[in-house]
Design a protein around this nucleic acid. Structure first.
Lengths: 86, 86
DNA sequence: ATGGGATGCGGCCTTTTGTCTGTGGAACGG
DNA sequence: CCGTTCCACAGACAAAAGGCCGCATCCCAT
C-alpha cells in the first residue's frame, strides 16, 4: 500500500460519507470529473492546491485525507498505516 | 496572500524552528536543495508526496504546514488566514 | 582579507498533473 | 425496453513539478 493508495481510499470514503457523486465533487473543487476518478483510483497524486480543494469541498482537514500516511526521514521511506481498516 | 505563500511561510518558519539548513532538509526529504528554496519562496507548489516528506522531515503534520489555508467550495475560492502573524 | 556555509536565482530537461473528449458498462426506475 | 445516473478508462494536450547545474551574494568566523 502506497501513500497514494491510502489517500485514494481516504478520499473515496470521505466523498461517499458526504453523499455526493464524483461529478458533484468535481464541481465543488473546480476539478474535472475524470480527475476525481483518477485520484480515487490512485492513478494520480494531488498537488497542494488540489488537496486543499478536496478537503474543503468535503468538510475535512488535509490531515484527514492524509490519515495513515507519513515519511520516515531516518529510513528514507514512506510509512503507511491502516487507521480505519480497509 | 495565496495559499502557496502561506504554505511557504509555514515551511520556512518550521525549518528554522527545527534548526536545519535547506540543504539538510533537502537530504531528509530526498528533494533537491533548490527545490526547498523554491518552495520557501512560494515559487512552487508541492505535490502530495512532497508535502508528506516535508512534514515528516520536520516532525510536523501536514495540517501544520497547511495552517491558515483552506477552500470555500461555496464561494469557489481559497481562504487564507494569518494564524501566527506574518 | 579570505574562506566556507547558506541561500537566491537563472536555465534546461524529464516526468507528471490536470483538462477535455468520448466510449462503454453497470445499476436503477418508469 | 429505454433513459438516466454514476463511474472506469483511453487518448491527446497544455501546464506545472521536480532534478540538476552553475553562478552570485551575504554573513560569519578566523
Amino acid at each position: 500500500m502506497t501513500p497514494q493508495e491510502r489517500f485514494a481510499h481516504n478520499l473515496r470514503r470521505r466523498r461517499v460519507a458526504v453523499g455526493i457523486s464524483q461529478e458533484e465533487l468535481g464541481e465543488r473543487t473546480e476539478l474535472h470529473r475524470t480527475e476525481i476518478s483518477l485520484l480515487e483510483r490512485a492513478g494520480r497524486e494531488p498537488r497542494f492546491a488540489t488537496l486543499l480543494k478536496l478537503a474543503g469541498a468535503l468538510g475535512a482537514t488535509p490531515n484527514e485525507l492524509c490519515a495513515g500516511t507519513g515519511w520516515d526521514h531516518e529510513q528514507r521511506r514512506f510509512t503507511v498505516e491502516d487507521p480505519t481498516g480497509d
